[in-house]
Measured scan of single mutants.
Amino acid sequence: VGDQVLEIVPSNEEQIKNLLQLEAQEHLQLDFWKSPTTPGETAHVRVPFVNVQAVKVFLESQGIAYSIMIED
């Protein structure tokens, strides 16, 4: 199991704000291929294997929908 690319769908401005804060966490080494800008629009982010669980827990705790787009 390696890195994953998640497709994330924020449903409101609050969730977009939370994702932008997540993007700013440099220690997570997230690679946003497509940043969140509009509710209902997908964002794509590559998550290093060591941080996959932490990111998924965060998304679930914020009620942000996501799916695994690419499993490496």
Rank of each mutant, 00 (worst) to 15 (best):
S11Y: 10
Q15W: 01
Y66Q: 01
I16A: 03
M69Q: 07
I70C: 08
V5N: 10
V55L: 11
P10F: 10
N18R: 12
P39R: 03
I16C: 06
L20E: 07
F49L: 11
T42L: 08
N51H: 15
L28T: 03
L59P: 00
D3T: 11
I8W: 01
S67A: 08
I64W: 02
Y66E: 00
L19I: 07
T42K: 09
K17C: 06
L28N: 03
A24P: 03
T37F: 05
N12C: 04
H27C: 05
V52L: 15
L19G: 01
N51L: 07
Q62F: 12
L28D: 02
N12L: 02
E13H: 12
Q25K: 07
P48R: 04
I68E: 06
N12E: 03
I8N: 00
E26L: 11
I70L: 13
Q29A: 12
F49Q: 11
P36V: 10
Q15C: 02
L20Y: 07
S61C: 06
P36L: 04
S35I: 15
D31C: 08
V50T: 09
L22C: 03
L59T: 01
V5L: 10
P10R: 00
A54P: 05
K56A: 06
V57Y: 12
A43D: 01
Q29F: 07
K34I: 09
Q4S: 08
F49Y: 12
L28W: 14
L59S: 00
L20D: 03
G63D: 07
Q4N: 04
T37S: 12
N18I: 15
F32W: 15
N18Y: 15
R46I: 05
I70D: 12
L19K: 00
E71Y: 12
E71C: 08
L28Y: 10
Y66F: 10
E14L: 09
V1T: 15
V50Y: 10
Q62T: 05
G63A: 05
R46P: 01
Q15H: 08
E13K: 10
N12H: 03
L6K: 00
T42R: 08
D3K: 07
E14N: 08
M69V: 10
L28G: 04
Q25S: 12
P48H: 04
Q4E: 09
Q25R: 08
T38Y: 11
I8Y: 01
I64H: 00
K34L: 06
D72E: 15
V50N: 11
L22T: 02
V9P: 01
R46D: 01
A24H: 09
F32C: 03
V50F: 14
I70Y: 11
P36F: 03
S11V: 12
N51E: 05
I16V: 15
Q53F: 08
G40E: 03
I70W: 12
I68Q: 05
I64E: 00
N18E: 09
E71R: 05
R46Y: 10
F58I: 08
T42N: 05
L59N: 00
G63H: 07
L30D: 01
F32R: 02
I8S: 01
M69R: 06
L20C: 05
Q29C: 07
M69G: 05
V55I: 09
E13T: 12
K17D: 07
Y66M: 02
N18F: 13
V1Q: 14
E60I: 06
G2P: 14
H44M: 13
D3G: 14
L28M: 10
A54K: 12
A43L: 15
N51T: 06
Q21N: 11
V1D: 11
V55G: 00
V5Q: 05
Q29N: 13
E13A: 10
V9F: 11
E7M: 13
L6C: 01
F32P: 02
N12V: 02
A54G: 04
E26V: 10
P36K: 01
N51D: 06
I8G: 00
I68C: 04
E26R: 05
V57T: 13
V1N: 13
E23H: 08
M69H: 05
T38E: 09
R46E: 02
G40V: 01
V45Q: 00
V57D: 12
E13S: 09
F32A: 02
F32S: 02
P10E: 01
Q29P: 03
P36Y: 02
D3L: 08
K56M: 15
I8A: 02
I64Q: 01
V9W: 12
F58Y: 13
M69Y: 10
F58W: 15
Q29I: 05
T37H: 07
E60F: 04
P48S: 06
V1S: 13
A43G: 04
V9A: 07
E71N: 10
K56R: 10
L20Q: 08
Q25G: 05
L22P: 03
E7S: 13
K17E: 11
Q62G: 05
L6P: 00
E7L: 14
V1F: 14
K17A: 12
I8L: 09
T38F: 13
V55P: 00
A43K: 01
V1W: 14
K56W: 03
E60G: 04
T37K: 05
A54I: 13
A65Q: 10
Q15G: 02
E60D: 12
Q53E: 14
N51F: 09
T37R: 04
L30M: 08
N51Y: 15
S11G: 07
I64F: 04
E23R: 12
D31F: 07
L59R: 00
D31G: 05
V52P: 00
Y66D: 00
L22V: 03
I64M: 05
I70M: 13
L19E: 01
A54E: 14
T38H: 08
E60H: 08
P48W: 03
E41K: 08
F32N: 02
K56T: 09
G40Q: 04
V47I: 09
E13Q: 10
S35G: 13
Y66N: 01
L19Y: 01
S11R: 11
Q21W: 15
V5Y: 10
I64Y: 04
V50G: 09
G63E: 05
A43V: 14
L28V: 04
I64C: 01
E13P: 09
H27D: 11
P48E: 04
T42W: 03
L59M: 03
F49N: 11
E71A: 13
A24Q: 14
A65S: 12
V52E: 03
